[in-house]
Design a protein around this nucleic acid. Structure first.
Lengths: 328, 328
DNA sequence: ACCGTTCCAGAAATCGATTTCAGGGTCAAG
DNA sequence: CTTGACCCTGAAATCGATTTCTGGAACGGT
């Protein structure tokens, strides 16, 4: 059914080796080359990538492993990776882990045993184990989050500073007690963003125990909604809240609208754009959180590793927004 | 670096064939089996999938090819496919085509030459060519959209009826002139949804040329925004609009808010939920458009084909919402 | 005219797992 | 005791492309 290189060779009257050489640009006399190309076209020949990968010990596919495909931050990141990778001749396949270690392990295993050219990984948690990947010299770049104790390239945002800046912005607007909704325990970005918040909170309310005004949720809409509701039930509720990611901000805002307390009645600062928003009014502070840019940078780094860059592991802290393209 | 089956065999003191049998559940005496398992663990052996795929002529990966990874409808669909596929022991990789035929062709080519177990495809357009896939007997299920002239399984929504229902709902609310914003030319869902609208529109305004109140945009937020703006600039603007997908509805709503004409000042009916919405007021009619359900159904169908079901091609028109799970 | 390169093509090895095939052993029935 | 059936096991073929190795032809220099 599928034409093989042997059939092409037979039709062109040459050996399979010659066919391979023609298709890979090695030196072959023009007469044979033409014959081979003609035969390949006639048979609609497409080289079997499995065989090629087995022999070459490396495919031309990059795996992108992300925790939540339904979060527009990660899909923007995916687009960034994709744009760079396709331009460099690689294809990208996306794998969704749902923040579950077993699904993540499964996809990491696939990346290894399919001998993929490289992996861009947003780890489910710091416990993610990439030793197997490193042991086989597969280039890896972690993005958005890092893994614990691995000497591996990382492209990150300054989370602590993000938390600080967002919280400060609210105090600057005149709010007096800024709560925080952050992500799950043992997700490093969640802790760091909360750290930034805690620092500013404590400076403004030294007598109040910060943890009372800290909520942890699952980085998704429902989590933000529930956490916001929980905060508003406090005996002394906050008058503003720093929400540590885009989706939870949506949830928080949904809850505030439902109890008729829309910003700026209560202050709200979000790390990352509200996706697909129809919220036009003032009162929500948005700090850009450039997923696409992270993806572009990570892909550039990964491609340079695939290209043979064996320098020591680098950590890049990205700043700026999606609008400015990093030089690549 | 990577342990092979030969090394495991050597360590266990058996032949590679026996190692393979142990790992694949064929009959092997318990003593050897234990030795092999021990050796495999000691060497941290992971079978090379490339080699396995080459020999078996089929991998255990399902490709899901979608036109816009940033559209929550498709990510919900992806989750549906994923849930079913993972449960059945297959892994899913996601490929994003951006509605571009060249990117789509590239991924289709990969699906073939990586010998993937099956493909769930939301075609960029009816011109998408899947002959190569069919020629190699790779199971294919198209979803959301179909391809022209291929006898292939399809899981679709009733687009025409959706357009009809959404438009009727607006007239029932008392609006008098319902415009339509649909997707690009030569995308079948766009045409069908517009057909449904046209039917109802013409019944209500037999003297008006329907095409005057029809706009085509790119199925994304900016497209919806621009199309809405265009409609409002008409000498005689509509008093309501049927918007044919979720993202364009967001854009349309954004424009209406910006000119201070928020629903229900103007009627708006959307095919599909407004994603991540913070819009709480009435005045927007939403017809459920269950992406996840489509994905579940498509995966079920694909898995049955992979399992050897060679019956004639089926077309399934999905109804209902994401809440009810299809029996699978 | 002879020798040493250079160039190009084919034969064969290779990647690593699976699977067919063939043979050796065991066991039961005759 | 022999024969047949059955079960394991290992040797070897296989999947399809790439790449090394080998050798023949052509060509240039002396």
């Amino acid at each position: 059914m599928a034409a093989t290189i042997y059939e092409v060779a037979a039709l062109a009257g040459v050996s399979p080796a010659t066919v391979s050489r023609v298709l890979n640009g090695a030196a072959v006399s023009p007469g044979y080359a033409a014959k081979v190309r003609e035969a390949a076209t006639a048979l609609n020949f497409r080289p079997n990538r499995t065989a090629r990968t087995l022999r070459r010990q490396s495919s031309e596919i990059i795996a992108l492993i992300i925790p939540d495909i339904e979060n527009p931050f990660y899909t923007a990141l995916a687009r960034g990776v994709e744009d760079r990778a396709l331009a460099a001749g690689y294809s990208v396949v996306l794998c969704n882990t749902d923040d579950q270690h077993d699904k993540e392990a499964r996809y990491l295993d696939i990346a290894i045993s399919e001998q993929m050219a490289g992996v861009v990984l947003a780890p489910a948690s710091a416990r993610t184990d990439i030793d197997a990947l490193l042991a086989r010299n597969t280039p890896v770049v972690t993005v958005d989050r890092s893994t614990h104790g691995h000497a591996v390239d990382a492209v990150l945002m300054d989370n602590t500073d993000g938390g600080r800046a967002a919280t400060s912005a609210l105090y600057d607007e005149g709010f007096l007690r800024v709560a925080c909704i952050t992500g799950p325990r043992d997700v490093e970005t969640a802790d760091q963003r909360a750290d930034g918040w805690r620092e500013v909170f404590t400076a403004h309310s030294p007598r109040v125990k910060a943890e009372n005004y800290l909520r942890r949720a699952n980085y998704r809409v429902d989590g933000g909604r529930a956490a916001m509701a929980d905060l508003m039930r406090m005996r002394r509720p906050p008058d503003a809240v720093f929400v540590a990611n885009n989706l939870m901000s949506v949830g928080a805002l949904q809850h505030l609208l439902s109890i008729d307390m829309e910003p700026p009645a209560i202050g709200l600062a979000s790390l990352g754009d509200l996706p697909f928003t129809t919220w036009q009014k003032k009162g929500v502070t948005v700090l850009p959180w450039p997923g696409r840019r992270l993806g572009l940078t990570a892909a550039d780094l990964l491609l340079s590793r695939i290209g043979g860059d064996h320098g020591p592991a680098r950590t890049i802290i990205t700043r700026g927004s999606d609008e400015d393209d990093p030089t690549g």
